[in-house]
Amino acid sequence: MKIYSHNVIFFLKKYKYVVLTLIIMAVAGDILLIENKSDLITFFILSLIILFFRFYKIGSKKIFIVSIFPIVIIFFSFIIAPKSFAIEKASTWLFLLIGTGILQEILGKDTK
């Protein structure tokens, strides 16, 4: 069991950017591909973000970078399909990501 968990940790550390990219793609996928609002999926992805950002010791600022993606999606969705449900989902994701980033920042040790 111990060897197995070591292997998993090694794998995750080795493919850090792949994992993070997959997570961001999961956010984009939830916004663009899933037609209905599913809290299960949303909070599952959000938990993965929190988990892996802590695992990789990534600062709160990176979460704010991720939150730019929903804004970009909103911008293009307004041009292509102004009434699409994706715009609302992107807004929800923006809210959640900013909230998560702020929480992380407040809990961070070097707050002024």
């Binding site: 804004i71 911008f75 041009i79 707050t111």
Partner: peptide, 28 residues
């Protein structure tokens, strides 16, 4: 469409807040 700049300003403001100033966090 230009109005997407405003949420972008909010996010960049949080991003650039390198000194971890609490004011912007409290307002946010």
């Amino acid at each position: 469409q230009v109005s997407f700049v405003f949420p972008l300003i909010l996010v960049f403001g949080l991003l650039i807040n390198k000194k971890r100033d609490k004011t912007i966090l409290l307002i946010a």
